[in-house]
Write a protein that binds this DNA or RNA. Structure first.
Lengths: 230, 230
DNA sequence: GTATGTGAATCTCTTCACAGCC
DNA sequence: GGCTGTGAAGAGATTCACATAC
């Protein structure tokens, strides 16, 4: 694995959750740097790109290994590979998409995913109307086939793009089928066994956070349609 | 405003960012409780629903006012109204959608938004092909019309569902048009003036976080297609 | 008895500052 | 000179525990 040195990020201990999030951002920046042909980068430069301190960058990376060279900085290509290995994006993750509605279809075509090892390998929908149709080249399967196909194709992750009301039930089926990681787009807090990871993308919540911030700025008694009732 | 007491959440100071996020979750839980007809709820119960401690719930709420009744708990209806006022979801926020591709169209139809005061009032796209067409009853306008329409309709927020490469430019146009809050779906860190709020929904990043978590579980030398190259 | 609101204690994360290396 | 990795200090967030109120 490139340069020697440790790499024993035992994790589980100590690593701030936020640090792992920044890892993704570092990786993204490194990919851009690769494009631009830059060979090395310092923690200071990397920090500037993400508006964080250089110390933060070094600490974050140090949680996962010794990647830098004193006096030089980090080798872009090498650090990229290391971070990909840490995040797991150096592997292919066979992924199921559950829910072929508007959002599901949008996610199916979303670049960001395919380009990063997240290969949507099968699409499912609970609606009988949908089953059998094709979206972007993928046939839509009924939920009943989930377990079988999950076995056949070795599905590991699932993207849940279903209505909130259905999310809980779908999640349990997905878990039954042996999926170990769920990306949940429903505004619900899923109940799953401990050994299954869930990450949620809560779009409505984010929009509310935005409203809050803007609301604060406006001194709390300002312009947006001051309509009451509804 | 309902019961007396302060309500002077001066904010800007002290309020943990995470507390504001939980506010949205409390609100969601309260809406569900309203449905079920429950009149009051304790910090303990509310905490259980979101898997956090009762002390956390009380601290969070206390940042924004005095909403509780010792011995009783919180009145569901009243707390709901208070939180809506704090978050700003008691008002209507005229919102622009920029980018009418797959994701944009999905967001346009997304319940979660419309049901919460976020009314998409105008749709824009930079692609001449798109302009003039209708999506879900909304005509797609060219970017050139953004400023004019923003003025006419009093647009306050914008949802950016455009490719990463276009995001920066679109953001500056949106800011030019007087938008003060941006919900950004592109995996880019936008540069905007201080007086504009940006909240990002980074779906690819979230999926990577999921991969990381699963990767950790598997002891770091396990099953997902151990393919290398490409 | 029940339950809130809040200072104090604890835990977690970030920044500082510097030894060590190129 | 420039830069990393890291212990120690500082900031921030969460939990404890209790005075107060119903």
């Amino acid at each position: 694995m490139s340069r020697g040195k440790s790499n024993s990020y035992s994790s589980e201990t100590g690593t701030p959750k936020a640090a792992v999030e920044r890892l993704s951002l570092y990786l993204r920046e490194l990919e851009a740097l690769l494009e631009s042909g830059q060979k090395t980068i310092s923690s200071h430069q990397l920090g500037q790109a993400l508006k964080i301190t250089d110390a933060q960058v070094r600490k974050d990376l140090a949680y996962f290994g010794q990647f830098g060279y004193p006096g030089i900085g980090y080798r872009v290509e090498e650090l990229r590979e290391s971070l990909r290995a840490v995040l797991g994006t150096d592997k292919v993750w066979p992924t199921a998409l559950v829910g072929a509605g508007n959002l599901g279809r949008a996610l199916l075509g979303y670049r960001g995913f395919a380009g990063r090892g997240f290969q949507v390998t099968a699409v499912f929908d609970g609606d009988a109307e949908m089953v059998g149709k094709k979206v972007l080249g993928h046939e839509i399967h009924p939920m009943e086939d989930l377990s079988r196909i999950a076995d056949e194709k070795g599905l590991v992750l699932a993207i849940l793009a279903v209505p909130a009301a259905a999310a809980e039930e779908v999640a349990s089926k997905v878990v039954q089928a042996g999926i170990v990681g769920i990306l949940n787009f429903a505004p619900t807090q899923l109940k799953v066994p401990d050994e299954v990871s869930v990450i949620s993308v809560d779009m409505a919540l984010r929009l509310e956070q935005l409203a809050f911030q803007v609301n604060q700025r406006r001194g709390h008694v300002a312009s947006p349609s001051e309509s009451k009732d509804e």
